[in-house]
Design a protein around this nucleic acid. Sequence first.
DNA 1: CATTGATGCAACTCCAGGGTTGCACCTAAC
DNA 2: GTTAGGTGCAACCCTGGAGTTGCATCAATG
Lengths: 120, 120
Amino acid sequence: MTDPRPGGAEGVDSVLAALADPTRRLLLDLLAARGEASATALAEGVPVSRQAVVKHLAVLEAAGLVRGGRVGREVRYAVRPAALDATARWMAALAADWDRRLARIKLLAETAEAAERDAP
Amino acid sequence: MTDPRPGGAEGVDSVLAALADPTRRLLLDLLAARGEASATALAEGVPVSRQAVVKHLAVLEAAGLVRGGRVGREVRYAVRPAALDATARWMAALAADWDRRLARIKLLAETAEAAERDAP
DNA sequence: CATTGATGCAACTCCAGGGTTGCACCTAAC
DNA sequence: GTTAGGTGCAACCCTGGAGTTGCATCAATG
């Protein structure tokens, strides 16, 4: 979509899509609390099967919100704040941009109204 | 008001869900550029039918990202930055929280390692 | 080596939601 | 009144994603 400032993260849409699912947000929360956990361990704290958790973790990893690494015979996942932070900044910039535009529109409307009053 | 209490992000999930769709982000962009527009007008700047636009606007309005009001025989929509801004702040806080927790975990790991070294 | 616990792969179901079309309704303008 | 542009409602496809089950596979440990 529109990127007000080039240099901003391009993973924004994948991050938004990833965060749109409640189960994935739950998983991120669990991961943030534990620091590190395997898919099997996470599945015990979530109302879905292990396979579902695996799929969700794949989505999260593709979005850069999570990173998985092999430790022995299991795969440990950990949260990765960078992507989330970048998206937060992008959103803040977008909100500021909207504010700016709305202020401009409002100003134009007022001056037009004033002109209307002065020269009908 | 879709912004009840500080900790409990209730409007956040609807905002994330709304933002997850590319067409809706496009619509928001068009709206921000024009300031105000009707569903029919917006449909001409988007690769989908008017009805699809109407549905998207309903979702956006439910999320508090947009506000619609009747003007004559048409309904004008305008962007509403507050909800977006609130979600941006929520995300930033979340990212900061993750950072905090990760730092704690890392510290614990290091002290544990040190203890391991001193008393094996 | 055999066992146990973890991951990986694949096929399958199910449904929410994005998209469409058609028509009815309302309101301004002629 | 009649017309035309705009909105609202409803029924209807259809794809994708969330979730499941079953089995194969690989690594640590006895």
